[in-house]
């Protein structure tokens, strides 16, 4: 395991946003975190990425306990987080965004030629089909933007990629594209924490599934221990769904 949590808990005032969550992700594996709205998924990844600090339990990186006080610290340990909208400047070109904050230098100058070339190569290596690295990021589709952010994290040596609902705003085809890059990052040996509330997105790429409900874990399943049908059922609240189906049936 690169990162691991044991009995992690977080409260906001009187709200217990997260209770007793134990999970982990190993190199070359995808751990999916599933749950309904308000289940605590974002709270969990904000702790992982250094944005929040946990109140109870422990958070381990490479087997040693950590308490990050900023996203920068998590980043320095190789834990990169990709948010849906943050971290891309719409009016700037793809290559400028790709290297923003870590621009390659040539003497005093920003090595523009190299930045363009490396961005193009890295995107190609991830199989990302960007028309032109000079185009503004604002003109990319949501899926392409996610993909560029993923490629950037991979290029800058992330060992763990934390993705907060990267597919939720996307159409079927675009979501497929992003899932492919998640698989590709996994194949390059990264650990991936993939947050989603869509079991159909989680099942094809996930090795492990953590289900959250109202801040508490409903269970942590290995891929072999659960079928997609069961996953969907659990997600939707199992028995509740049967009830709903019954309720909605025509009299």
């Amino acid at each position: 395991m690169i990162i691991e949590t044991r009995g992690l808990g977080k409260r906001f005032g009187s709200v217990l946003a997260l209770r007793d969550v134990s999970m982990g992700v190993a190199a070359g594996e995808v751990t999916c975190v599933l749950g309904d709205n308000g289940a605590g998924k974002s709270t969990l990844i904000k702790i992982l990425s250094g944005m929040h600090r946990h109140d109870t339990g422990s958070y381990l990186v490479d087997g040693r306990e950590v308490r990050f006080s900023s996203p920068r610290e998590a980043l320095d340990r190789g834990i990169a987080t990709v948010y849906q909208d943050l971290a891309m400047i719409p009016l700037m070109s793809v290559w400028r965004n790709f290297f923003l904050g870590s621009e390659p230098r040539k003497g005093l100058a920003f090595d523009v030629a190299r930045a363009r070339r490396v961005a193009r190569e890295e995107l190609a290596a991830m199989g990302i089909d960007i028309r032109d690295v000079d185009q503004p990021v604002g003109t990319l589709s949501g899926g392409e933007r996610q993909s560029v952010a993923i490629a950037r994290a991979v290029h800058f040596g992330a060992r763990v990629l934390v993705l907060d609902e990267p597919t939720s705003a996307l159409g079927v085809k675009q979501a497929g594209v992003v899932l492919r890059y998640i698989a590709r990052a996994r194949d390059r040996g990264l650990g991936v924490v993939f947050i989603t509330h869509n079991p159909h997105h989680a099942y094809p790429v996930g090795d492990r599934f953590l289900l959250l409900n109202r801040g508490s874990p409903l269970g942590l399943y290995a891929r072999d221990d659960i079928t997609p049908q069961e996953l969907t059922r659990l997600m939707a609240g199992g028995a509740e769904l049967d009830e709903l189906a019954h309720e909605l049936r025509r009299e």
Partner: peptide, 12 residues
Amino acid sequence: NWIFAVGGDEQA
């Protein structure tokens, strides 16, 4: 690069 970035989206 930073000038364009802080003007485009400071948080990001």
